[in-house]
Computed example of a mutant assay.
Amino acid sequence: MSDEDTLKRKAIHFIFFQIALLQEISRSVVRYIKMMLFYQKKSIIKLFQENELPQKERPKVFVAVAHITSVEESKNPEKGAAKIERLRHTIDGLLASFAHCDLSIAIQTLPNRHVTAYLPEYQTKCIQVQEYPECDPMFVGFRLQEEFVEKVEEFDWFLFIEDDIILSDAFTLEKLEKFNGQSGYENAVLYPNRYEMYQGTKRYIDLTIARQLLTNKLSSVEIEGVKFAEFNNPHSAFYCLSRKQMKHWIKSGRLFKNQIVDVGPLESAVTFCLLECFSIYKPHPSNLNYFEVRHYDSKYSKLYPEPESPYTLSAVDRSSNTAMVENS
C-alpha cells in the first residue's frame, strides 16, 4: 500500500471519527438540555400555579344496600365468610367511587340476618344498619325504596345496590347526568352492564343468561359517540336515580310497589317495578364497558358457560395459546 493510500485512509478515519465525536457531543448536549428542562419544570409549575382550587359543591348520595344472610351465617363468621367478603368489597367500591361526594350508606337487613358486625372497623363507622323485623326477607329491596321516599329532599342521588355488586367508577354521576340530560327521553334511566370474572374471562352475564339478546333499535340513542339501548333483559342489581327522577317516580303512585312483576321479588324491586315509570337503558353492545358493575361471584358464568358468546371477553387469545401448548 502506497503512502498516498495510507494518508487517504487516515484522512477518512479522521473524518468519520470527527463525525462520531460530533454526534456523541450532540447527544450529550441534547440529554443535558432535556435534564435541565426536566429540573426546571417544577419551578415553572410553581410560578404559574393556580392559587385557589375550584370550589364545587359535593353531591349528596344516599346508598341503600340490600343485604340478607342466613341466621347461621350471621352468628358464625366462618360460615359467613363468603358473605362478609363480598359485602366488604361492595362497600369499598362505594367508598372509592363516591369519595368526592357526601356519601351515606344504609345496610337494609333483618335482625340476625346480616354479617355487618364482622366488617372492618373503618367500614362499620361509615354505614348505618337498618333492621326491619316486619319485612319479608325477599322484599327488602322494596322496603329500602321507602328510605328513598322519606329522604327525597335530603339527597341529590339515590342508589340501590345488592350486596354482591361492585362499582368501580368515580365518574358514575357524571355519566348519569350526561345521559339524563342528552338522551332525549325524559323518563329514561341508565343502568350499568353487569359482568363476572370467570377463569380469566369477563362475562356480561345479563346478556348471556337470556336465550336471545334483543335490543330496541327504534329507541336506541347515541351521545358523544357512545350508544345506548333498551334490552329485553334490563336487570343489573343496581340503579341510581336523581332527585328529579325520584320525585317523578313518587308522583306516579308507584303502583308496582311490592309486586312481583317479573322473575321474582328481588329482581322486581331493583329493575322491573321501575318499568311502570321509566324506560331502562344500558350501554349498547358496541360499547358495553362504558358503564358497568361487577357481580362478585361466578355462579351465572358456571350455569351459562358460553365461551363463544360475543359478550364473553378475554384479553388473551386462548385459541392461539392452546395451539402453542399442543405444538410444544
Rank of each mutant, 00 (worst) to 15 (best):
F171P: 01
E267K: 01
K75S: 10
F139S: 06
E150Q: 15
P234N: 07
C277M: 13
S28F: 10
F139E: 03
A66I: 10
A66T: 14
A20E: 10
Q212T: 12
E150Y: 07
P54W: 02
E222Q: 15
G181P: 01
G80S: 00
F48Q: 09
L119N: 05
Y281K: 10
H248Q: 15
S309N: 11
I260K: 13
E196R: 02
P285Y: 00
Y304E: 08
Y39H: 12
E78Y: 06
P120I: 06
T6L: 13
Y239D: 02
Y118M: 07
G141D: 13
S104Y: 08
V129W: 02
S252Y: 02
Y304H: 14
S301L: 06
V149T: 14
M197F: 09
A229H: 03
F38H: 11
E150C: 12
A106P: 06
V129C: 02
F160E: 00
R294N: 13
I15H: 01
I105E: 04
E150F: 08
G264F: 04
L313H: 08
T172E: 10
V61N: 05
K151I: 02
N232Y: 04
I15V: 14
T215N: 00
V263P: 01
Y304A: 11
V63W: 04
R203L: 11
V152M: 00
E308Q: 13
K251L: 13
L21Q: 01
L207H: 11
V63H: 06
F228K: 11
I209H: 05
E131L: 02
Q259D: 06
F139Q: 06
G184F: 09
Y118Q: 01
Y239N: 15
V65Y: 03
P234S: 09
Q212D: 14
P234W: 05
A237F: 01
S183I: 02
V29S: 03
N216T: 06
K10H: 08
N216R: 09
Y311E: 01
R143I: 12
V71H: 13
A269R: 05
C277H: 13
L255V: 14
R254D: 10
P283A: 11
V189Y: 00
H67W: 04
L266N: 03
K299M: 10
G181F: 03
E150D: 14
Q145G: 02
I205L: 11
N327C: 04
A117C: 07
R194K: 13
H100F: 00
V189M: 05
I84E: 07
M197H: 05
E196A: 05
V71E: 15
Y281A: 08
C277L: 10
A64Q: 13
F278V: 06
D136P: 05
S168D: 15
L241M: 13
